[in-house]
Design a protein around this nucleic acid. Structure first.
Length: 468
RNA sequence: GGUCCCAUCGUCUAGUGGUUAGGACGUCGGCCUCUCACGCCGGUAACCCGGGUUCGAAUCCCGGUGGGAUCACCA
């Protein structure tokens, strides 16, 4: 049994977008699931559009996703000699030929064809001229006029193409660079790729590539064309649909595992299961379960899934992911124990890490900013006695833990004949500056006695100051 | 326009001839409760249309319609 070899072959002409990430993920999952090999290849034959910054951006995004490769990265720009060898073979075998038609001439014949309602294709002017290599000459493939080429797709089934739809496409440009279809085939052949998993938008290229495999005398790999990722209006995702770059989601506070889970579930399913850990995905992913129809990228569902992952992840694993968001706000989260406590209280109420950091403000800011409405409603004269009593009793507490705190509050409730809510809200405002927060006993134990007493004192002063 | 692909709640999907068409997100109620969440309970909402095949079609076939992809010396 031959081992599975898959590859992700992005062109470095921008950041890694959501669709590309999913293609990478499916290739990676298929390799990991089968114990195969995942290869990264950079398709940088377009001199004008490829940039090193894009290459770095792709690495960065893949690293964040945790999609690691076993071989590569290979760069097509460094494999020119290899392509040229294959070109020469093809020309020698009669499968390809030199062509000196100018781009203008090609455009003219296309124009003419369109005018008469015919297919805009190369008319074969140089096909049988037996031209030799010349500066600026391109190399074209001698495509068959007759017959059909069928793609046996792992997800779409058999797709039949009439060869007359194809024309003598260019294999090597005038500047000596190979074109995509040619370079991809040579690479997939030499890298011994067994399974080509890629976006739906490549199906039309597949018959051309199959013809090349045949001309080169190589057996075909398996093809699996996965459906596209659409924007909310069901068209191909683009900037106007919101964030499309993978790193944008990292910066929004998504967990890589949640993002991967979401991407996988978009177009792939395993019964009714929605939540998958990374190991789950590797264990359960199969090409057979990939759907045929395109799916809309729904950021709301992504966020909901992220919330699930945040809840399911232990604080110590969340901490490193959260730290950058805390740091961005200028907060020092060096104390691990403290941070883990903070995270535990925020986990059930944060959909993203950014949200979590935002909600952590009172844990890391001593100068609490009182919300005007909250203060007006709860820091009033009538809440002064319980607050004072609470502050005094906290000082005498032997163990500053949730259980003891609860006891203090129960006593306070009896003493002042108040429901817990009547006492808790003023305390909450005193401690956090707002009316919304995790439970007050949790908050108090994490904050610790000193900070709590301090903030209580400030709230008391605030009330006394306001009401003469 | 040619070629190719696709079609189940608003969205992601389960479903492979017989189901009250299931789950999730969203949304709407309710419960829980120290606030907000979480959680729990319940409601809402779908088989694109038309023909066949069959005792019986969301499921199979054909035709429409709709959407998408692609038609380069880009990848």
């Amino acid at each position: 049994m031959t081992t599975i070899r898959t590859r992700f072959a992005p062109s470095p002409t921008g950041y890694l977008h959501v669709g590309g990430a999913r293609t990478a993920l499916f290739n990676w999952l298929h390799a990991r699931h089968t114990g195969g090999c995942f290869i990264l290849r950079i398709e940088d034959t377009d001199q004008a559009r490829s940039t090193d910054a894009s290459v770095q951006a792709i690495f960065e995004a893949l690293e964040w996703l945790g999609v690691d490769w076993d071989e590569g990265p290979y760069y097509q720009s460094q494999r020119l000699a290899l392509y040229n060898e294959h070109i020469e073979r093809l020309v020698a075998d009669g499968h390809a030929y030199y062509c000196t038609c100018t781009p203008e001439a090609i455009e003219a014949m296309r124009e003419k064809a369109r005018a008469t309602g015919a297919k805009p294709r190369y008319d074969g002017t140089c096909r049988d001229r037996g031209l030799k290599s010349a500066p600026g000459a391109v190399v074209r493939f001698r495509a068959p006029y007759l017959g059909t080429t069928v793609v046996a797709d792992r997800v779409k089934g058999a797709i039949v193409f009439a060869n007359e739809e194809l024309d003598d496409f260019v294999l090597r440009r005038g500047d000596g660079m190979p074109t995509y279809n040619f370079a991809a085939v040579v690479d997939d052949v030499t890298m011994r790729i067994t399974t080509i998993i890629r976006g739906d938008d490549h199906v039309m290229n597949t018959p051309k590539q199959i013809l090349l495999y045949q001309a080169l005398g190589h057996p075909l790999p398996e093809f699996a064309h996965v459906p596209m990722v659409l924007g909310h209006d069901r068209t191909r995702m683009s900037k106007r649909h919101g964030a499309t770059s993978v790193t944008a989601y990292r910066d929004m506070g998504l967990l890589p595992d949640a993002f991967i889970n979401f991407l996988a579930r978009l177009g792939w399913s395993h019964g009714d299961q929605e939540f998958f850990t990374r190991a789950d995905l590797i264990d359960k992913f199969t090409l057979e379960r990939v759907g045929k129809s395109a799916g809309v990228f729904d950021p709301v569902k992504l966020t909901a899934l992220n919330a699930d992952h945040i809840q399911a992840t232990r604080p110590e694993y969340l901490a490193p992911h959260l730290r950058p968001f805390l740091a961005a706000r200028g907060w020092d989260a060096a104390d691990d124990n403290y941070l883990h406590g903070v995270i535990a209280t925020l986990q059930p109420r944060s959909k993203t890490l950014d949200e979590m950091a935002q909600q952590a403000h009172f844990y890391y800011t001593e100068a609490i900013e009182l919300d005007e409405k909250a203060a007006a409603k709860f820091l009033k004269a009538d809440s002064l006695p319980p607050l004072q009593a609470l502050r005094d009793q906290l000082g005498e507490l032997a163990n500053f833990d949730e259980k003891a705190l609860e006891g203090v509050f129960v006593k306070l409730m009896e003493q002042f004949e108040l429901k817990l809510g009547k006492i808790a809200q003023p305390v909450r405002v005193a401690l956090t500056g707002n009316t919304v927060s995790p439970g007050i006993f949790e908050i108090m134990t994490i904050l610790g006695r000193d900070r709590v007493v301090n903030r209580l004192g400030r709230a008391i002063a605030y009330i006394m100051n306001k009401t003469p």
